[in-house]
Design a protein around this nucleic acid. Structure first.
Lengths: 259, 259
DNA sequence: ACTGATATCTTTACGGTGTAAAGATCATAG
DNA sequence: CTATGATCTTTACACCGTAAAGATATCAGT
C-alpha cells in the first residue's frame, strides 16, 4: 500500500506536461508529444498519429474495450475494493476522467463489466451442462460449475452479486443476467423431466427454481465469505467444500414435480 | 443530495469555533462553551460540567454507545452506502475524528454494529423457534424469521452479510455471529430429531446444516437484491415472497438423518 | 489542594475517491 | 480548408478514512 502511494506520488511529481504515465503497458499505442501547446503546426516531430482508417475510431483506438479489459485486470489484482474509476483509468493509461465519456459514471463501468462476467458465467454453466449425460448429472455439474466459477473469479462474482453499484436496467447487463438465469431454469426443468414455460410457472416449479438458485447462491456466498469454515472444521476429516456441496446436492436432488 | 451538500456547506461556514453543530439531537448532553481558548479559569459561565460520578466516564458520557446508536440510525436512514465514519460522527454531534478513539477505524465501528445486528438477529430467530410447537414447525418459523429480519432491517443484514469491511476476528462480532449460527444448528438438529454435537459432525449433518443455511441465506440475498422478481412475476397470481419461501421449505423439509 | 499523567475530543492535514465543467486535440464533414 | 463534434485532459469541488498534533477534562499521587 505504501509502495503504491509512493508510486503514485512519483507519477504526480513527474507529471508536469502530459504523457508521463507509469503504466508499462498501453503506452506504445500513443506517441510521445511535446508539452507545448500553442506551437501549432511547427516542425515538431509528430510521429505518424496512427491512421487506422477503419473500425478503431478516434484517438485511442477503442478505449471502451481497453477500459473494460483494464477493469477486469484491476478487479482480479486488487479485488472489488480496488476497482475504482481512477484505478481503471491509470491501468489503461488515460486520464482519470476519460472513462466518464464512455460509461457515464462508475455504475456504468461496473455494470458493463458485470455483464461480461454474466456471459462468462453462463457459458461455464452451459459447458458443464453439455458435458454431462443424464439430467440429474447435468444439474449437479451445473451447480458445481456455478461454485467453481465463483471460486475461480471471486472478484467478478462479488461484482455480479455483491456490488450495490450495478444498474440492472442497463440492457447489456439485464440481457446477460437473464440469459444465465434462463440456463438455470432450463437445468431445473430438465432434472424435473418437464418443459418449463417462459411465461408461466406453477408454484412448485417456481419453488424448485428458487430453491436451486438460493441453495447454490447461498452456498457460494457463505463459502467466499469464509463462513462455512465453522462447518467444514467440524465435518469428518478431509471434507472439502466440494464434497460438502456434493452431499448437499445429493440430499435435495431428484425432486419430481408435485401434483 | 444537493440539499445535503448545502447543509454541509452551511455547517462548515458557521463552524468557526466549536459546538456549532447542526445535529438537532445529542446537543443537550454537552454544555455550550466559549470559543476562547486560553482565558483559563476566568469568570466564564461554565454551566455545571455534568458530574455524574459514576458509570458515565468522561466528557460525553458513553460516546461509545452514542456512536453505535447514531450508526444504527444512519444505516436505517441512508443505507449501507451512507454509513461512513464522518456521517456517524455528524449524527452523534461530535467531530469526525472522535470515533477513531473508540473503534480504531471504520472496520471497528462496522464490526461492533454488526455484532449488535447478530444479537438482534439471533434473538428474533430464537423467539420464532420458541413460538412454534413441533420441530418441523420450529424450523419453518425460524426460517421465516430469518427472512423477515432481513426484510425489516435490510441495511443491517447487508452490513452483516454483504459488507467487506468487517473483522470477524473481533471477539464481540465473532461471539455474536457464532451464537446465531449455533441457533441455526440447534434448529436443524431438532428437525432431524437428533442431538448435534458441538465438536463433531457427520457429513450428512454438515450437509443438512449447510443446506438450510445456504437455502435461506441465498433466498434472502436474492430477494433483497430484487433478483427473485423474475420468478415471482411468472409464478401464479398473488404469489408473494413468503408463499414462495413456504413452498420452498415444504419441498426440502422433513429430512431424516441418513445412515 | 495542587500538579502531572492520561483519556477524551477537536483541529488540521493529506491522499484517495466520484463527478462536473471547461479546455485542448483530433477525425471527419462540408 | 475550415467548422463541427467526438475524444481526451485539466481543473475543481465535496466527500471519504486516517494520522498527528493540539486542547480539555478527569483522575491519581503527593
Amino acid at each position: 500500500m505504501i509502495v503504491k502511494q509512493n508510486l503514485y506520488s512519483v507519477k504526480i511529481a513527474t507529471y508536469n506536461g502530459r504523457m508521463a504515465r507509469l503504466s508499462k503497458e498501453n503506452k506504445a499505442t500513443r506517441p510521445a508529444q511535446t508539452p507545448k501547446r500553442r506551437v501549432a503546426r511547427a516542425a515538431t516531430v509528430r510521429p505518424a498519429p496512427r491512421r487506422r482508417t477503419n473500425d478503431t475510431p478516434y484517438h485511442h483506438g477503442d478505449l471502451h474495450e481497453a477500459l473494460l479489459k483494464a477493469a477486469e485486470r484491476v478487479l482480479e489484482r486488487d479485488g472489488l475494493a480496488g476497482l475504482t474509476l481512477r484505478a481503471v483509468a491509470r491501468e489503461a493509461g488515460v486520464s482519470h476522467a476519460a472513462p466518464t465519456h464512455h460509461f457515464g459514471d462508475l455504475t456504468g463501468l461496473l455494470s458493463e463489466l458485470a455483464a461480461i462476467g454474466f456471459r462468462q458465467f453462463g457459458q461455464a454453466m452451459a459447458a458443464a451442462d453439455a458435458s454431462a449425460a443424464t439430467p440429474p448429472e447435468k444439474g449437479v455439474a451445473s451447480a458445481k460449475a456455478y461454485v467453481a466459477y465463483a471460486q475461480a473469479h471471486p472478484g467478478m462474482y462479488g461484482l455480479m452479486f455483491r456490488s450495490e453499484r450495478l444498474d440492472h436496467a442497463r440492457p447489456s447487463l439485464h440481457e446477460a443476467s437473464e440469459a444465465s438465469f434462463a440456463g438455470l431454469t432450463r437445468g431445473v426443468g430438465a432434472s424435473r423431466h418437464e418443459e418449463i414455460s417462459k411465461e408461466q410457472l406453477t408454484l412448485d416449479q417456481a419453488a424448485a427454481i428458487a430453491s436451486a438458485w438460493s441453495l447454490v447462491h447461498g452456498f457460494t456466498m457463505l463459502l467466499l465469505d469464509g463462513r462455512l469454515k465453522t462447518i467444514l472444521d467440524r465435518a469428518p476429516e478431509g471434507t472439502s467444500a466440494e464434497t460438502l456441496l456434493t452431499a448437499m446436492l445429493g440430499r435435495s436432488a431428484s425432486k419430481q414435480p408435485r401434483p
